[in-house]
């Protein structure tokens, strides 16, 4: 089984050369990221931010530390809980400091090294800079990055931890963001029942129902929720009626291109059992509601030629829907959900 995984690691010499070239030399012990060799190459450029055990540990501490928010009440984990696939379970829209409510459902954090854009509208173009958005948003953490850096620099513990990763105690925006990215890059989910079946692990098989569901999934869903990551990373208008209060125009706000009007990102379906509620605004609590939406879209709901379901939704009968859901539950990866390495760091 071991040889079926790719190990991303940097030999000492390469690391030393990179350290010479970059402004911030990376010290510490190399952290090896494991993922199946059948997967595509990660999008993330690890050479610019080589993973180390110290860097990942620092990122993890930061991820769980409310010091990142203005009034020290909200941490990244407030809306991205490890036990629920790193999303805000039960909350349709995420809430931040002073119980402010945002406008979108917090996305699950999984397999981020393979993602080329972030947020529901793809407004963030790199994992390193993703954390800036929640840190600075008034309804989330309401902070200023320069002030976070100041606060961290004044603590007892952080300067020393940064020194362990970057060689000196100076905390900068770049170092803070790269450390947060290091931890998030380790959130790889690749050991669900689906993965084990695909790897042909002995004694692991789909049930008859899961098999039928998988076939239906490949026929109806996989063009967008492409294996093995269960997303193609693209953006579509999927015929959801506009929420009259939120009036969210999706990716259009970013590109000002009418083809992106009300388009949102295709989310990964990994650990979907635990990442409810669903859709960009969390309007559906149950998977069957999502399938009901996709099976009842009628042609003509939109005149837009690039509208994803111009020819109508997908067709599944009631039994088919139950089968597809049975398959989707095989994407639950308990090793990922209950990985002690991802949980709150006990010091």
């Amino acid at each position: 089984m071991k040889n079926k995984f790719i190990h991303i690691a940097f030999p000492g010499l390469l690391l030393a050369l990179l350290g010479l070239a970059a402004a911030a030399p990376h010290l510490g012990e190399v952290f090896t990221l494991k993922y199946p060799e059948s997967w595509p190459q990660p999008v993330y450029d690890f050479q610019k931010n080589p993973l180390t055990k110290e860097g990942v540990a620092l990122g993890r501490k930061l991820f769980y530390d409310p010091i990142l928010s203005r009034d020290s009440t909200i941490s990244c984990s407030s809306c991205h809980l490890s036990y629920t696939a790193f999303t805000h379970v039960d909350h349709a829209l995420s809430h931040g400091i002073h119980d402010s409510i945002g406008t979108r459902n917090s996305p699950a954090l999984v397999n981020l090294a393979w993602s080329w854009s972030f947020m529901w509208d793809g407004a963030v173009n790199h994992l390193d800079v993703q954390a800036l958005a929640p840190i600075t948003h008034p309804a989330e953490m309401g902070e200023d990055l320069a002030h976070v850096v100041e606060k961290l620099q004044a603590t007892e513990s952080y300067p020393n931890l940064f020194a362990g990763v970057y060689g000196d105690e100076k905390i900068t925006g770049e170092r803070l963001l790269k450390a947060l990215a290091q931890f998030q890059l380790t959130l790889v989910s690749c050991n669900s029942k689906y993965d084990q079946v695909m790897r042909g692990e002995p004694g692991i098989e789909f049930s008859e129902q899961e098999k039928r569901g998988y076939e239906l999934f490949k026929l109806n869903c996989a063009s967008c929720h492409a294996e093995p990551l269960f997303t193609n990373g693209e953006f579509y208008h999927t015929g959801l009626p506009m929420d009259s209060l939120l009036q969210d125009e999706g990716r259009f706000n970013l590109t000002l291109d009418e083809r992106d009007w009300r388009a949102f990102k295709v989310p990964s379906l990994r650990n979907i059992e635990f990442s409810y509620p669903y859709m960009h605004d969390g309007r559906f609590k149950k998977l069957y509601q999502v399938l009901n939406h996709y099976t009842t879209i009628r042609p003509g709901v939109s005149n837009l030629p690039y509208y994803k379901f111009a020819k109508g939704g997908i067709s599944l009968d009631e039994r088919g829907k139950v089968d597809v859901i049975a398959f989707l539950l095989t994407l639950t990866d308990r090793e990922f959900l209950f990985n002690p390495e991802f949980a709150f760091p006990k010091e």
């Binding site: 450029d45 390193d128 800079v129 900068t172 925006g173 770049e174 963001l177």
Partner: peptide, 21 residues
């Protein structure tokens, strides 16, 4: 599109958009 940068390009300097990278 190259992620977090340092020096004059550090995102703490008030010259980086958080909600539209």
């Amino acid at each position: 599109v190259s992620g977090a940068m340092g020096g004059d390009l550090d995102p703490t300097l008030g010259m980086y958009w958080a909600w539209n990278s």
